[in-house]
């Protein structure tokens, strides 16, 4: 019987005992390092770490629909915004804890994804059509949030500060958000790892690689893609809630901007689609590139130019992603 890992080249291969030990040690070192890191860096370093794990968790959630299920979704920012607006709105106007808002956001995002997914998958939107369809959804949401004053209109919803707030109000020093995003990232990595090894993941991989064949094997693509889409949306919402608390506002132009829509895809693709570590590595690289190029203020626009060039160069040099590269390298050395 095939296991998910044999069919799908993108998941973690069953390692030999020595490699497994190495992997575990590596993971423990990574987590330990991540926990300790903020103490070793200044504020700016912490801000960069927050950025890395924000993109890591956000992109990990996209990875579920984009990597494991192989559906190019450009609507992910919409579910992120749903999470952010749910918690901001209920806190500001109802005084509810953002934790309640987070749960609400997850619920609403899941329902929205179920509704949208039921329609688009039933109508068999694939490939670029699915991308444009999800992009349409995201754009419609952006315009609606901006023009309906009930949601705060274009000015959005400012989140009032509560000094001496209990932790349930999710208002912390920046390092607090770092740990939140870190926890979220680790949770999502675990989720992706489980998907890669499960029957669900195996079936998703078959659908991803060849949808017609999947049907003949008795797998139902619509239902699988829908589940992946809903899961992906539900994991995006908490990222939105925490980010809203980090910046203390929600606003349609920022949360549903073209950059938000596109940038969530980049870490997963650069790091390795459908892999557990891909989004994290991609997020680290993306953040570092953004920070480094922003130092190159030779002339207005030059940093952006350098960033654009970096985006062009990477897919050419590392086509399948960083993690597969590292994994293959380690595998070859191991022989």
């Amino acid at each position: 019987m095939y296991s998910a890992s044999d069919v799908s080249a993108a998941s973690v291969a069953p390692p030999a005992p020595r490699r497994r030990a190495l992997l575990v040690i590596g993971l423990v070192a990574f987590v330990a390092g991540a926990v300790v890191a903020p103490q070793l860096l200044d504020r700016h370093g912490v801000a960069i770490l927050v950025s890395i794990f924000f993109w890591a968790s956000f992109s990990s959630s996209w990875n579920i629909i984009g990597g494991y299920a192989g559906q190019f979704s450009l609507g992910h920012a919409a579910f992120f915004a749903v999470g952010a607006y749910a918690s901001a709105w209920t806190y500001r106007y109802l005084g509810l804890s953002p934790l309640v808002g987070l749960a609400l956001g997850v619920l609403v995002a899941g329902l929205a994804a179920a509704a949208l997914g039921a329609i688009v998958f039933r109508y068999k939107l694939l490939g670029t059509y699915f991308a444009i369809g999800t992009l349409a959804f995201s754009e419609i949401l952006r315009v609606t949030l901006g023009n309906v004053s009930w949601f705060g209109g274009s000015g959005g919803i400012p989140i009032p500060l509560a000094p001496e707030a209990p932790w349930t109000l999710l208002q912390f020093q920046p390092v607090g958000y770092y740990y939140l995003f870190l926890a979220l990232t680790l949770a999502y990595m675990l989720l992706c790892w489980w998907i890669g090894r499960s029957r669900f993941g195996f079936q998703l991989a078959v659908v991803r690689d060849n949808e017609d064949v999947a049907e003949t094997l008795g797998v139902r693509p619509e239902s699988l893609k829908l589940r992946a889409f809903v899961l992906s949306a539900m994991t995006a919402a908490p990222v939105g809630t925490i980010y809203a608390q980090y910046v203390m506002f929600v606003e349609p132009q920022t949360f549903l901007s073209f950059s938000m829509v596109i940038q969530v895809v980049i870490p997963a693709v650069i790091g390795g689609l459908g892999t557990v570590f891909g989004p994290v590595l991609g997020a680290a690289l993306l953040t570092l590139v953004i920070e480094l190029t922003s130092e190159l203020a030779v002339r207005p626009g030059f940093s952006l130019f350098a960033y654009g060039c970096a985006l062009m160069v990477f897919p050419l040099l590392v086509p399948s992603g960083i993690w597969p590269l590292i994994r293959d390298f380690v595998a070859r050395r191991g022989r």
């Binding site: 693709v269 952006l304 960033y307 654009g308 060039c309």
Partner: peptide, 11 residues
Amino acid sequence: QVIFTIGLLTA
């Protein structure tokens, strides 16, 4: 392709 063309657009 998407990432590459976005890079091109940005640049």
